[in-house]
Design a protein around this nucleic acid. Structure first.
Lengths: 166, 166
DNA sequence: GGGCAAGAGTTGCATTATGCAAGTGTGATG
DNA sequence: CATCACACTTGCATAATGCAACTCTTGCCC
């Protein structure tokens, strides 16, 4: 609010709108990637697998916290994933009141396939960007990401672009 | 795959990763915005309101199509929104088999508040970006958005950054 | 050691979200 | 007017969720 540059608010507004628009596109890519690859699974189930994939085996409460859901919900979602063969419960020898949940090979494979698909979708878009426009993109996006990562110091439950909401 | 530039695949990879990272951040912003403003409402309900807000009153089938859900789901979600006072059913005088659904003032207000909140969240991030990095951002994002908008010719059910998944 | 509070997970209960299939009107067509 | 396609709606079954109550374990204090 006290910058030497003349056009400040306007610049911020322009960037904000551009980001908002790009945001919609990216969210769509995430959505289609899960739908395309992870056929029979539901989204909440997939989110749980992603959490396990990025953070390794977790105890149930931590998992619920990461996903922002009630432990009871996590319990039952894990039940279904175990039945489907994508996750497994392991009893913790150090603390018998804790249950550790991990991915099975099939679960890890599913997560990898979706991530690969999403990466390829984004790459396909990037390849259509004119070369002269590409230069600033990496730097600009990194600056944006850095600016956005700082204030919300909490851990990211938003990995894989999948949140409880969108 | 037949470009004169030497570093091509690498460049694409770098941009892809940058986009993927930014994507997670943006998705988190969307999520928090809804959660912060739209207290009692559920996400599927809010998505429906957003669809109505951006496309105006719609008949039920169109609405379901936009949201990517079964018409029966749309019917029942509309039921709840009507009960809550955010949406209203209007019979179409031209075709008695169609039902037009629109926002009530309260519904429109809710959608506006969430959108404003999200815009302010993004603006807050943008303001933390160093000036020298801002220059390329608008152009880069626009190029990205344009590149991404072309091939998927379908209408955007992803408005408001809210999809059926994430 | 006994007892108690806190923590971890599960289960009961109620509501919402969803898809598929079947049923009810309505419109368009020949 | 008979029929077929469309636009919902409703029945049915399963998943997702939160809250509250309950069972075990652990940790801690006396």
């Amino acid at each position: 609010m006290s910058n030497p540059e003349p056009p400040n608010g306007d610049e911020v507004d322009a960037i904000t709108e551009a980001v908002l628009t790009a945001s919609r596109l990216l969210v769509g890519v995430s959505a289609r990637s899960v739908a395309a690859v992870a056929g029979p699974i539901t989204l909440p189930q997939f989110r749980l697998l992603v959490a396990l994939g990025s953070r390794g085996p977790l105890k149930l409460v931590s998992l619920a916290e990461m996903l922002g859901v009630n432990p009871s919900t996590a319990t039952r979602t894990v039940d279904r994933l175990v039945t489907a063969g994508w996750a497994e419960r392991k009893s913790n020898p150090d603390s018998r009141r804790e249950v550790t949940v991990g991915l099975t090979p099939a679960g890890r494979d599913l997560v990898d396939r979706v991530t690969d698909y999403r990466r390829s979708e984004i790459a396909a878009i990037v390849e259509r960007i004119p070369h002269e426009d590409r230069a600033g993109l990496v730097q600009a996006l990194q600056a944006f990401t850095e600016a956005g990562d700082e204030p919300p110091p909490r851990a990211s439950p938003y990995d894989a672009g999948l949140t409880k909401w969108e």
